[in-house]
Design a protein around this nucleic acid. Sequence first.
DNA 1: GCCGGCGGTGATATCGCTAACAGTTGACGC
DNA 2: GCGTCAACTGTTAGCGATATCACCGCCGGC
Lengths: 345, 345
Amino acid sequence: MADVARRAGVSAMTVSRTLKGTGPVTPETRDRILQAVEDLGYVLDLSAGALSSKKTGFVSVLIPSLNNSNFSDTVSGITEVLDTEGMQVLIGITNYSRLREEQVIETMLQRRPEGIIVTGGTHTPRGRLILEKAGIPVIETWDLPAAPIDHVVGFSNAATIEDMMARLVFRGYRRIAFIEGEHGEDTRGQDRRAGYERAVQALGLERACVISLGRPPVTMAQGSPAVVRLMETWPEVEAVICVSDLPAFGAIMECHRRGWAVPDRLAIAGFGDFEVARQCWPSITTVSVGSRDIGTRAGALMLEAIQAHHTGESLPPRLIRTPHTLIERDSTAGRPEGATAGRVA
Amino acid sequence: MADVARRAGVSAMTVSRTLKGTGPVTPETRDRILQAVEDLGYVLDLSAGALSSKKTGFVSVLIPSLNNSNFSDTVSGITEVLDTEGMQVLIGITNYSRLREEQVIETMLQRRPEGIIVTGGTHTPRGRLILEKAGIPVIETWDLPAAPIDHVVGFSNAATIEDMMARLVFRGYRRIAFIEGEHGEDTRGQDRRAGYERAVQALGLERACVISLGRPPVTMAQGSPAVVRLMETWPEVEAVICVSDLPAFGAIMECHRRGWAVPDRLAIAGFGDFEVARQCWPSITTVSVGSRDIGTRAGALMLEAIQAHHTGESLPPRLIRTPHTLIERDSTAGRPEGATAGRVA
DNA sequence: GCCGGCGGTGATATCGCTAACAGTTGACGC
DNA sequence: GCGTCAACTGTTAGCGATATCACCGCCGGC
């Protein structure tokens, strides 16, 4: 930068101001500097700038996996918003493990991000502690934690499935099963299952029938053995909700193979509104949670929080409930006998 | 760090050595320092370290989109490998635009990455120039550029489709169409189309039938109108190759809706070996290019190149051809009349 | 008994930039 | 004509770490 300054006949400070757009610079001086930058092929060093200004321009984003389009949609949304302010997203993959999340948080903080966005509201005690003490805005997403760390942009996973259950019952289904991932790490999946069980109670259904797929990430492939097991275990089942569209799709394909009509023999619903749910035949009833919107809203909130952070005050914890939408499609068209079938006359 | 040093009764330098694992430190001293770190809740600042050591620990990775599991698989692979050396991936999204890529490259270089991995071998002249002059290892992936900038980890997109064509012809198909994305930006898609046209020539087929989907990213949804248009335009078509599994899937679902048997009325093949291709019914014939492997190999190569870069010598440009595998599935089971149908007797 | 070398540690000088303050000019108002 | 203020530019002093060299013991070899 000193070279540039010399060549343009100004001080390094003026070069800095020109390149960052902070402070006033005479147009001529500016041109001269930009010319010098061009001539020398100079590239600003943001690491050095970060050290001196104490603004790294980083925001860390922690997600369970990149290979789930729900999460990559959220990241895309965040990235898009932060890009407008020249901030760089640092992605951390937690692999659906809270312990891994804790480690990733620790290493992330060494980069001095100006804010951190995590997926879910359940963390290891130490992970939570570190986040609280980090002294930067924190946003928890994809969940509505009972005791948020700071800000929240999310929805109730349980409620999405309760809504779905109500709708299925309204459509005439009574024997409704649930296909879930393994217990333990995927807390959002657990919440959905909890929603299912509450709904079974609330709607007065006979009993909860749950098939477990295995460790997350849940995949399309897991759907086919799961639906087979389901039909063997509870042949009387009329409908099934899957913890995600992916196994729902796998299940539907298995049904095609076996000649089980969907939805007439078995209605199948998913979660997440993946592209495959819309394109599948029959198209899959699902819940859209607006993955990308969660990202853009979290991004915007983060910018606001960082802004406040810079001016000294810290933004009071905000809770943004994002809407979820039940999307009824062909895979749950209703009992053949009509919407009232199975109801008490 | 000075605080930690004081509390442990050593110099800052020793603290640094302990935390980074560089240089020898007596176990006792080490423990004392780690205790002090714990007590004070001290977190190392890598930005500062980067400035003085001139090693940022960043590697930039540019991809067209995060929402394509092929690319996110590659990124996962890269991340996984670089993680082992504590390096952080900086993701840049180019949106399938070369101009955008140029801009992203410029802003990325301000972060002083130690290496940069880009998707594809076609760039704007200026983008290419900047990469060449960046003075860091560059890896081009997902392609085999005629004139590589530096290293390459990729495969010939054209060859994948040529192989596919040969196989389809072997299976007895003669009238084979191609469904592609719009011309212009997606150079990998263009290469695949070029492979198709070469194969039409080489195999002595009647003519090339190409349906264009629209601007990338190509989606599942685009598959259905495309296949309808295809059948209207060339009713005699027997098979079609799609530029990606996603529209191939959309096309198959449309065929289900319309009662066109796949593969008997129309065989459909894709590209990319997305999960949906394996799970779809009928399962989709495709080309696997090992997206994740491309990532792990590029990651490993990058580590090696950075290593060399540190010791002064720069690694001679390396070209790693990754294997692609044709995966035949149910969607191209062969002409009903048998594998020799359509051949000259 | 002397010397070379290694394990362990510290002092100092940056790394490249920007915050903060301190000029310097010229326009404007009264 | 003079004070005031805004626009513009420069000076100085770090930001928080690490490269580098220097130093001190102590060991082993000849």
